[in-house]
């Protein structure tokens, strides 16, 4: 049986978000770790490790937002207006992060560079946290009224479970960024990044264990689809194996493979969330009847069909040149006259 268009678009928006988490995930992580680098040269090495690609990575967020708007306008409108202040804060963080990268190396003054370094680091951490908190709220469910509008307060978004997901996201991205740094650097920075991998892995594994328990205890609906269809158990298992594989590859010095493991772990974890929430886009608690699903929040089948054609034409080309560009910039980062 073929899935209907609405389900396909649920999958495609999920695909874009996974792409975003994998790609911007490492450069947000690099941003957070950048605070712990030593000296201007190391900071520039880290910055230029993500230099050519961070901008393209952020486009995955922009396109995810566009796709959500297009495919599920009701969900886009409810979430964006409901999370108003949180998203304004996210915008501020995204702006400061973008200009910090662009501005920092443009002036030689020490205070100038320190200012932008701190702003780059803190905004990267704040972005990761806010994205995680938003995801946590969607996963746990939020109160909606009969018109599908958010019926809570902004303080209501800062419940324990979403905050936990926020912290876990920060830990995950820091680990991902540390592995990326190991892969892209040499010398003392490379050695220090290997230590970062160890610490961030421990941090993430603790968060992951706590999150798993909290999910099973307090958000049981996320686990129901897996109980109903045991073969879906491959997702948590895959996540676990992928994470466990990271220290093994790092130990053997296979940094590239460690990075791919980390990418796979992110993909499995997000698929887990997607499977747990489907068919709900925004689950309404306590009144489940007010929820937004892939059906009542969607655009018309005609629009979903048109967009599928757009995606089918465009995305293979996008993936093709994205992979090519990553390939061109492969290998250890070196500072050049055009670097940041």
């Amino acid at each position: 049986m073929l899935p209907d268009l609405n389900t396909v678009w649920f999958g495609l928006v999920g695909f874009l978000l996974i792409g975003y988490a994998i790609l911007d995930g490492f450069d947000l992580g690099v941003g957070g770790l950048h605070l712990f680098a030593r000296g201007d040269r190391e900071r520039r090495m880290m910055l230029n490790a993500i230099g050519p690609v961070w901008d393209g990575n952020e486009v995955w967020l922009v396109t995810s937002g566009g796709a959500l708007f297009a495919a599920f306008p009701e969900a886009y409108a409810t979430v964006f207006s409901g999370f108003y202040l949180a998203f304004m804060l996210l915008l501020a963080a995204l702006i400061f992060r973008a200009v910090a990268i662009e501005f920092r190396s443009k002036q030689p003054m020490r205070w100038w560079r320190q200012l932008w370094d701190v702003s780059f680091g803190l905004s990267s951490l704040l972005c990761s946290l806010l994205i995680g908190v938003a995801l946590g709220n969607i996963a746990q469910g939020i109160p909606l009224d009969a018109q599908h509008e958010y019926a809570g307060t902004w303080v209501g978004l800062l419940r324990p479970y979403p905050l936990l997901i926020g912290v876990t996201t920060v830990a995950l991205f820091l680990m991902h960024g540390a592995i990326y740094t190991v892969m892209k650097t040499e010398g003392p920075l490379h050695e220090r990044a290997r230590v970062w991998v160890r610490f961030t892995m421990i941090g993430f594994i603790i968060c992951y264990a706590v999150t798993t328990m909290a999910t099973l205890l307090y958000v049981p609906h996320l686990a129901e689809p897996i109980r109903a269809r045991p073969w879906l158990f491959v997702l948590p298992l895959g996540a676990l194996l992928a994470i466990a594989n990271v220290p093994r590859e790092i130990f053997h010095g296979r940094d590239g493979r460690a990075f791919f493991s980390s990418c796979a772990a992110i993909a499995f974890l997000l698929m887990l969330v997607g499977v747990g929430t489907y068919p709900y886009l925004v689950r309404s608690v306590p009144d489940l009847a007010h929820s937004l699903t892939v059906h009542n929040a969607a655009s018309s089948p005609k629009t979903l069909g048109i967009m599928l054609v757009i995606a089918a034409c465009g995305m293979p080309v996008v993936l093709g040149y994205t992979v090519t560009i990553y390939w061109i910039f492969r290998g250890k980062v070196r500072l050049e006259p055009t670097s940041y």
Binding site: V59, T63, G66, A67, P73, S299, A311
Partner: peptide, 9 residues
């Protein structure tokens, strides 16, 4: 939406 999605892609 389709115009915005096309813009992204």
């Amino acid at each position: 939406g389709s115009a915005l999605a096309a813009e992204g892609v």
